[in-house]
Nucleic acid binder design. Sequence first.
DNA 1: GCAATGCGGTCCATTCAGCGAGACGGTGTG
DNA 2: CACACCGTCTCGCTGAATGGACCGCATTGC
Lengths: 248, 248
Amino acid sequence: MPESVVGRVFSLLSAFRPEDRTISISELARRTGISKPTAHRLVHQMAEWNVVEVTADGVRVGMGLFELGLLASRPVDLRAAASPFLADLYEATGETVHLAVAEGTDVVYVQKLEGRHGPPTASRVGGRMPAYCTGVGKALLAHAPPDRLAAVLEQGLHRRTPRTVVARGLFERELTRIRETGVAVEHEESSTGISCVASPVIGDNGEAVAAVSITGRANRIDTSRLAPAVRTAALGISRSLGTTGARR
Amino acid sequence: MPESVVGRVFSLLSAFRPEDRTISISELARRTGISKPTAHRLVHQMAEWNVVEVTADGVRVGMGLFELGLLASRPVDLRAAASPFLADLYEATGETVHLAVAEGTDVVYVQKLEGRHGPPTASRVGGRMPAYCTGVGKALLAHAPPDRLAAVLEQGLHRRTPRTVVARGLFERELTRIRETGVAVEHEESSTGISCVASPVIGDNGEAVAAVSITGRANRIDTSRLAPAVRTAALGISRSLGTTGARR
DNA sequence: GCAATGCGGTCCATTCAGCGAGACGGTGTG
DNA sequence: CACACCGTCTCGCTGAATGGACCGCATTGC
């Protein structure tokens, strides 16, 4: 439980979950360990900024925080540069298209175009998944600074589905293959029934600044057929970002 | 200049502008009136939560705030429900599609699908425009609670382009027409060279919870031809939200 | 080279914004 | 009625927060 007001404010905001519609001040207090009167006071102060909205049913994250979040130049610029390429990919395949960046040992999805006949995927704009078992994550890790990869390996490769790769040797061999081919494939490693093919968007320093992917039903999509399209989009985005992009 | 820490935190965050990539701590202090050491301290506290990122070039809004902003259930649920309808509209017309909600006397854009041959529009996801001179805004105002419309009229109708409607009588007559037709048209009222056609997404209480629009070049798009498609999308979104939707 | 300007960052005596245990009134449930 | 839970309030206490002053470094202009 943080001692500073800043820490408490963001502890409260971080206590909201994607599935919450509204939650009570008492529940916020419980989740954070902040005393109820303090939580009450901070919530009402935040409500003055529309950061949260206090409704009859409870508190929800407010439109003001949505607006502030969209001032984040890194994801916003990336979305803008990637937008036409993602739209092309979406139109060409009809599958779900993702754009993600690396954050710590996770990926954060910054854009998602929902396919019309795809499966429901666990991903969500602004949401996180572990990097090691997702297509975009592996594409990002293949071109990540060594400390990020080290952090992932130190955290461990934990089985999420029967198909998750948890053997370190296999995992590193796969990253090598991704570096050679420019494409990462995910076969039901994070979610059963879901496959995807991803490609890294390489920045100036040769590291991945983002990854783009197509996701679909494991028993329907042909990842090898989709790979060149995804790779092409990634290269286009890289060029659009004004970087030299991947040389190979 | 707020006295509370909460106020100062959000005053600092609100000082970022969409066109900023990074800004210096000194500039943040100048924009907010907060003393430099205090701004410095608060920025570094926020950086611990990834709400801002301190880079060699200055401070930028961080990925953590992007993630928190996307916990706002109101825009996120709306985007999810509207997603297939917006995609259809985008595919059918190839023009820029917007989804917006009312906030005070403004609209806030919660989704935007960028047309391939459309003009650059001033709108931005998470950004605001005045309601009175935008298609989505007028659609929202036509079905707004009386106090919202009163606030807009009290604030005044200010000319932004030669085509902006600033006569109160004309404006109110237009809202009446929108209520009858279910469609709002914007002819270069907010930006020269831009036209759009919008339709309100009506909620349970007969008020608009959102508006959807198609935007394009004023000299190219045929708003009367597009109106039924936009209206259809709005009705579909309303139904998808589980509301009774507009009866007429 | 020197002066001026601006940056991020630090210091520390002071102070008042922030705190929370406890209490209260209201609501819902069995 | 008893119980559980909610949001809200109180007020003496205190330590987290404050900012004027200052520093070293970098850049710019003369």
